[in-house]
Design a protein around this nucleic acid. Structure first.
Lengths: 329, 329
DNA sequence: TTGAAAGCGCTAACAG
DNA sequence: CTGTTAGCGCTTTCAA
């Protein structure tokens, strides 16, 4: 059996000379009670250091006061700002947040979801790698908000990279580049699919050739190691899935004595690291912090109004031109 | 009253033709049961999609199956790798993890702790900004593991920067620098206190002058803005509280036309960003990922053996020499 | 405005 | 090996 581990509502009740129901109400429905009763009860509670037991409350109400955010890789610089604002917004609504890192694996993501499912009000799935079916099933159970995943009928916030990507292609064309490569990210990432598709279309429309190099998991090392393939491709400019990859490419290029932007132009994505490198990278903006806040607000709103139509919030992007793009050699 | 929101243990029980206790045991103590009973029960559970209710379990056992990790700023690149390994290790022990971001505020940290206190087994406080007293009180309640905070009697993992710092001072001396500055971080950070103290001592011993510039919250902007003070100080080399600050300084210096390392030498700390910059920064190593894993293991171990002596794990550091340190001008 | 009592879903003695 | 029973701490009808 569970053993007592702190001050309980009952303790407060006896000391305040009221019933347990009254103590409960003093916190959850003070307007039902005599003002002085509320004050007395709260005073006693304070003195005793009473902290409500969430588990018991959850059991009684069916509400947990928790949400979960799942990300593929918290070490990828895109996610920390997102998680940060998310948690901050959640805190304001008195929600605690579980963090799950799926390590880019759909299976681990699914496991996290079931593990957390029994103690959260709702989920924010950021860049979910799971199948649409699984996500739909989950969403039937409880509120789900997606970030950078586009599933009809489920509330979501999408960072629409197509704007920035298109600008990038146009810029590169104007600079005289004829042959580009896209350093593609994880295949089950919606962001990658969108970026890839935009790039292919826009390049075709602009009359530019575009090769695709799969780097898989978007890491610095993967970017650096893709340089061989880049050189092989004969391209004079590259657009990377994200800034981490892009930064790896930058390093790999320099390692080979290929100077950026003199010999080669480079565009990143997400603008997470771009301003920090030397030369500062041209990158597509991505407002991860804003996305986190929107996701939290969307979830909280859905929690309160379960019947609302699924909303989709689109965050537009643009190209931030810095020093890694210039005239084709 | 709470309303049923899913398949309960009772549902499984009737369908499997056993008591609820048996269903419970089929999951928590299968060795007590007939193998075939276990299989039958689990089969039924599976078919029904039964997922145990954590709140109820927690209420009955007093155990929650959750831990919390609190960080001052998840967007600071030191923490994501730490949180990542922490969560991964926790997952292996079937513990879910709450993430709290205190935004460098002791008050918010305290609030998070009380908010989460009623649903976690234990805490990992990373770079806690709280008073020693509060932490001691908390530790009386439930297991607490500290990261980069040195409180006697509480299990902790400390990244000991003194090794790397000392090497840095020695290197700079050898390179002919006579006057250094330390770009100091948050005052209530143990790491800062340790780095500051080491630097002052070592420099004195080495016969070098060392100025201290407070940058407060360790951000890129703060680092960049500290350059005026650096120039004023007359120093020829700087050691920064962390790589974020250091990177800001690097940018600020370049902005003023001060070339690193030609005109000025720079050492970062934590080695989070150092390898990524151009020029690559000399920095003190810091193994955040290892710290996260150790912290998780320490907490899990404490959870299982409540009576053990408080352990302290010290992670040594060293200087990683790259390109931002050279002969004094 | 307050109290009594039932119950949320699960676990753990204690019997058998 | 399995069932019965009594809670874990809280909320919420229902009555007073």
């Amino acid at each position: 059996m569970g053993q007592r581990l702190g001050v309980t509502l009952g303790d407060v009740a006896v000391l305040a000379g009221v019933s347990r129901a009254t103590v409960s109400r003093a916190f959850t429905r003070p307007e039902m009670l005599n003002t002085e009763t509320v004050e007395r009860v709260r005073g006693v509670a304070e003195r005793l250091g009473y902290v409500g037991n969430q588990a018991a409350r959850a059991l009684a109400t069916g509400r947990f006061g928790n949400i979960a955010v799942i990300v593929p890789d918290i070490a990828n610089p895109f996610f920390p700002p997102l998680v940060r604002t998310l948690q901050s917004a959640a805190e304001e609504a008195d929600l605690a947040v579980f963090l799950g890192d799926s390590d880019e694996s759909p299976e681990r993501e699914a496991k996290l979801v079931t593990r957390l499912g029994s103690q959260v009000e709702g989920f924010v799935l950021a860049s979910s790698r799971q199948s649409e079916e699984l996500i739909r099933n989950l969403a039937r159970t409880r509120p789900v908000v997606l970030v950078n995943r586009d599933i009809d009928g489920i509330p979501r916030v999408l960072i629409d990279a197509s704007g920035g990507m298109t600008e990038a292609v146009m810029l590169l064309k104007k600079l005289g580049h004829r042959r580009l490569v896209y350093l593609a990210g994880p295949r089950d990432s919606w962001s990658d699919q969108q970026r890839r598709a935009t790039l292919v279309e826009t390049s075709a429309a602009a009359g530019l050739a575009v090769g695709i190099i799969e780097v898989g998991r978007p890491t610095y090392a993967a970017g650096r190691d893709s340089v061989t393939a880049i050189v092989h491709s004969g391209a004079t400019a590259a657009i990377a899935f994200d800034d981490v990859v892009s930064q790896g490419v930058l390093a790999g290029l320099e390692l080979r004595g290929i100077s950026v932007p003199r010999d080669f132009s480079l565009v990143g994505c997400d603008d997470t690291l771009a301003a920090l490198t030397t030369p500062a990278m041209t990158s597509v903006s991505a407002a991860a912090a804003a996305a986190g806040r929107s996701a939290a607000e969307l979830l909280i709103h859905t929690l309160k109004n379960p019947e609302v139509q699924p909303t989709v919030i689109t965050i537009p992007t643009h190209l931030v031109t810095r020093s890694t793009t210039t005239q084709a050699p």
